[in-house]
Structures are given as C-alpha cells and as structure tokens.
Design a protein around this nucleic acid. Sequence first.
DNA 1: CGCGAATTCAACCAGATGGTTGACAACGGC
DNA 2: GCCGTTGTCAACCATCTGGTTGAATTCGCG
Lengths: 119, 119
Amino acid sequence: MPEDSLSKVFAALADPTRRDIVARLADGDATVGELAEPYDVSVQAVSKHLKVLEDAGLVTRSRQAQRRPVHLEAEVFDLMEKWIERYRRKAEERYRRLDRVLAELASEDTPHRDEGNAS
Amino acid sequence: MPEDSLSKVFAALADPTRRDIVARLADGDATVGELAEPYDVSVQAVSKHLKVLEDAGLVTRSRQAQRRPVHLEAEVFDLMEKWIERYRRKAEERYRRLDRVLAELASEDTPHRDEGNAS
DNA sequence: CGCGAATTCAACCAGATGGTTGACAACGGC
DNA sequence: GCCGTTGTCAACCATCTGGTTGAATTCGCG
C-alpha cells in the first residue's frame, strides 16, 4: 500500500491512459466526458483514472453544475523532478569519478615501455 | 509503443523499496545480498525487485563469479524528466496565459471570446 | 571432488488494479 | 415538474503484483 505521495504519483503516471489524460489536460481543463471520448473505454473507467490522478495530487476537480471540470496541478511535478534530479546527479558524479580513475589506470597500463606491473 | 518503456519506469519507481534501492545504488554498485540486507524481506523478493528495475532499464547486472553486482543506469532518468518537463512547461505556460487574460478581463469590462480549450 | 555461498526459478497466495455493467444522484432545459 | 445529460457508486471479474517457501543453478574454495 503506497501511502506516501511519491509512490502515488509514480503509480498514477505508470498508466499510459492516465499519462495521456495528463498530457491533454496540459492544454486546458476538460470534463470527464470530453476526456473519455477518445478512449475505447467506459466513462466510469475514466472516472476511476481521474480518481487515481486526484489522489496523487496531479489534478483537482471543481464543481460546475453537474459537470466536474478537471484541472492539472503542476506542482506535483516538482516533487518528482526533485527526487529524480537528486539521484541522477549522484550517479553521474560517481560516473565521472570512475571515469577519471579508469583513465588513470589506462595511462599507467599503457605499455609504452617495459612495465613490470605485477599483482 | 515507445510509451510503454515510460510505463515500466514509472511503475518501477512507484514502489518505496525499489526507490530506496535506486537511492542506494546511486552511491555505488552493490550485490543482491548487500541490497537485501537492510530490508525485512527475503532475498528472493529483492531479486524480483531488481528484475523489475532491470526490465525498466534502470539498472544492469553484470556477472562476477556467482555474484551479480547491480549497477544504476542514469540515462533512463532523462526519459522521465523529458516527459515531465514537457507537460509541466505547458501547464505553467497556460497558467501564465490564463493569468494574463484574467487580468485583462478584470481591468476592462469588455467581454472577450472564450479562449482555447476546444474539444 | 564436493561443500557452501549467492542468486534465480517455480509454485503458490493475498490483495491491488483496471475493466465491465447497472443503479442512482445532481442539475439545466423545456 | 419531469427528462435527459453528466458523473459517481457498487458489485463483480480477470489479471498483475509483491510477498512467501523450497528447489535448482553457478561458482569459489579447501
């Protein structure tokens, strides 16, 4: 049970339909019906998808008569990017360090002249 | 569907244990046993997690005697960030535009045509 | 050669997920 | 005031997921 928010966000975006919904909402708010129209699934299924996105904090739904316009919340993206950036940077840094070590080893190993590099 | 690889990556990171594994691998490669040690689950469970991460392209496993050192691949992060950045930017851009329109509407009373958001 | 350590494979199980259909709540237009 | 539109709730179903245990595999080492 992913109670933590990052898990919910990643899980929400792990579904292609939901990612597509997010993509379309980036162009503007839309109602459930409008969102459901292009897909080959029931409106209920899309409503469920929206609930997942809402629980993840990716969208909000207001009330406008019997319609529920869906709105994309961009803030959550920051949460993800922060996480990703953190470990990407670490990994790259480590990679550069390793690269340097390998370069050193390579230059030492280069058999330009007789080297007795035993062990 | 190249979209599907994105699904795998997001799904892989939707699990707290797997995110923690990624976090630890950012500090350096590790074996399955080492990775499993801090968690209260069997080594087999961790092995499964690693398979998920590997299928998502987040880690690679080499072979070193009977050990399988696990290595973090940072490239996949780019894929995610590209996706996120794209829609975050769009949403923010739209927000700024909306803001401007609202400001206009507020200052002059002239009713404009409805902007954007066709079906 | 064979034991033991590291890891994966296989079968199984509980619970989450994504889809369906059917009923119902809320509201605007006649 | 009713009716159709919009959306959610509920029950149900198949499949996926994350965990378990137990057996198999792959090696280094004495």
